[in-house]
Design a protein around this nucleic acid. Structure first.
Lengths: 144, 144
DNA sequence: ATGCATCCTCCAGTCGCTGGAGGATCAAGC
DNA sequence: GCTTGATCCTCCAGCGACTGGAGGATGCAT
């Protein structure tokens, strides 16, 4: 190292990248394996060394995962991000499709919440033979 | 067959059970493999034959799955169901734990919904270079 | 020089199924 | 009796998105 310490430049090994992005080391390797992250250069002893661009890409992936996008969608979003002159609509389609899925999931879970609340509320705490929870699971015809 | 047709008694093969309960054939075999369903008697040619008790058990499992219980919880619930003199509290603990998980998941998804709505709403539909969706994924520091 | 942290690859496991290959058997029609 | 098609059997691989461990090679700091 001849440079003093230029903060956030230069190459870092996978562990540092993991610490910087909050993505675990095996997960980073997994992303490389499935082609989400490009294979980085290696040292003579085969260690992966990442630059700032790799960190930005990985952070993008992480944010998208936190928002619940699946890896295929993220692949598309990354691809779009790499081509700034393409129309934004494609990204919007992906995001809105995901939003619709999220809304639907919320609706489903709310229905579950209702059912479960009713079941547990009715349960008086005696023997299983009189348990409303168990009973509901036996009788419950459909409603979902 | 000497009996006329006693509606819902006697043994039926796996396909009929699947049709009756709405659980797919491979899934039934899977439940047997992991010990959720007892192994049924077999015909001379190794075909599984199920009785009404098996159907009730499988329906129980299906209802519980529809309510989002994981298979381990269902195992416990089945176990309780098999022992009517045990206290109901155990079943309630399982159901309430699950209810808590569902509530938490709803909260998470609502947060996601908010983020995604904001992202897609701001997007004006030009080039990716100005896309709020892509931008949000790049910049998004935390907030989750 | 020593010792511990970090890295490497490969592989198995998680959860709850799902589906296919390759073969046996059954039930119904002719 | 024969053929046809549906159903059954076992075994095994795959999904998504990781996670973690074994077993071994480095790197870095003291």
């Amino acid at each position: 190292m001849t440079q003093p310490s230029p903060a956030s430049s230069g190459l870092r090994p996978i562990g540092k990248l993991a610490a910087a992005t909050g993505v675990k080391v095996p997960t980073i390797r997994f992303y490389e394996e499935i082609g989400l992250l490009p294979a980085p250069p290696r040292t003579a002893s085969d260690r992966r060394m990442y630059d700032d661009a790799a960190e930005r890409r990985l952070s993008f992936i992480r944010h998208a995962r936190q928002l619940g996008f699946d890896l295929d969608s993220i692949r598309s979003l990354l691809d779009l991000s790499d081509h700034p002159d393409r129309p934004c609509a494609e990204a919007n389609v992906i995001a809105e499709r995901h939003l619709a899925e999220v809304k639907q999931k919320i609706a489903q879970l709310r229905a579950l919440q209702g059912e479960l609340s009713r079941m547990t509320a009715e349960c008086a705490g005696g023997r299983v033979s009189a348990c409303k929870v168990i009973e509901a699971l036996h009788d419950h015809p459909a409603s979902l």
